[in-house]
């Protein structure tokens, strides 16, 4: 259970990215957060694992305060939360397996990790994570040699290797083409359903949001302006969230969406 209690974030420059957000996300839910760029989606997600420090209110994960955690407690909270990034954030000059093993660092001693002396059990977990996203054959390939879609699946595997209870995904498909986007979104959906991992995804394509979001949270200017089931979010709701009429850029594309739905 993730709980936002009047959570606020003001950046050093003075920008208020989050204005007193109060939310509850129960275990196992698939939540999609939508909003224009700059609406505070990224900040909301990063407030959960403390990558962005709160300046007001609090966020608790399973009852533990993120704001008041010390460095060690924060690492402990983060170890249960996997994260997936828009730009994948892989170390391109090392192997796929080494990237995925970064997800096991939280249980590996500093000395062991300095010498790359991972326990066989951890390597096994990393391999299983790669198998789940179907890129295990690339385990010993340098990450830079993979396509964008493959890189993002390695990113997902790295998050899964943590054996998390929560998965955060910050614009996971914004750097991918439409067909690959659906592959990645379906991976996330399957992980959510099969493993019961709470999954929170930032998206800006509203058709993708409606298709994959069990629950949709709309954000504008640092505030939650919509919170409801995905099937109830019609065009009017999105117009309200975006504060303007919808354009073709807000959609990934009906044709590919329909094709993906049919397959």
């Amino acid at each position: 259970m993730i709980r936002f209690e009047d959570a606020s974030v003001t950046y050093p420059g003075g920008v208020q990215a989050l204005k007193g957000v109060t939310l509850e996300i129960p275990d196992g839910q698939m939540v999609v957060i939508v909003g224009l760029s700059g609406a505070g989606k990224s900040t909301l997600i990063r407030a959960i694992n403390g990558l962005v420090p709160l300046t007001g209110g609090d966020v608790t994960v399973d009852g533990v305060s993120v704001r008041h955690a010390n460095a060690r407690q924060l690492r402990q909270i983060r170890s249960k939360i996997g994260m997936i990034f828009q730009t994948f954030n892989l170390v391109k000059r090392t192997s796929v397996l080494n990237n995925v093993l970064m997800g096991r660092l939280h249980t590996t001693g500093t000395f062991r990790s300095l010498l790359a002396w991972y326990r066989p059990a951890d390597v096994e977990i990393a391999m299983r994570a790669l198998e789940r996203v179907d890129v295990v054959e690339k385990a010993y390939v340098r990450a830079s040699n993979l396509s964008g879609g493959q890189q993002q699946r390695v990113g997902i595997a790295r998050a899964l290797a943590q054996e998390p209870t929560i998965l955060l995904a910050d614009e996971p498909v914004a750097s991918l083409d439409p067909p690959t986007s659906h592959v990645v979104m379906r991976d996330l959906q399957r992980i959510n359903r099969d493993l019961g991992i709470t999954t929170i995804v930032n998206l800006h394509f509203l058709d993708l949001a409606r298709m994959y979001g069990e629950r949709i949270i709309g954000m504008r200017a640092g505030e939650v302006v919509y919170d409801g089931p995905g099937e109830q979010a019609d065009e009017k709701v999105f117009r309200d969230i975006y504060g303007r009429s919808l354009t073709a850029e807000d959609l990934m594309g009906e044709a590919t969406t329909a094709a993906a739905a049919a397959s």
């Binding site: 391999m127 198998e131 295990v136 054959e137 690339k138 385990a139 010993y140």
Partner: peptide, 9 residues
């Protein structure tokens, strides 16, 4: 069997 690659030497 599971399709895992062999660790390159």
């Amino acid at each position: 069997m599971t399709g895992r690659p062999i660790r390159p030497s």
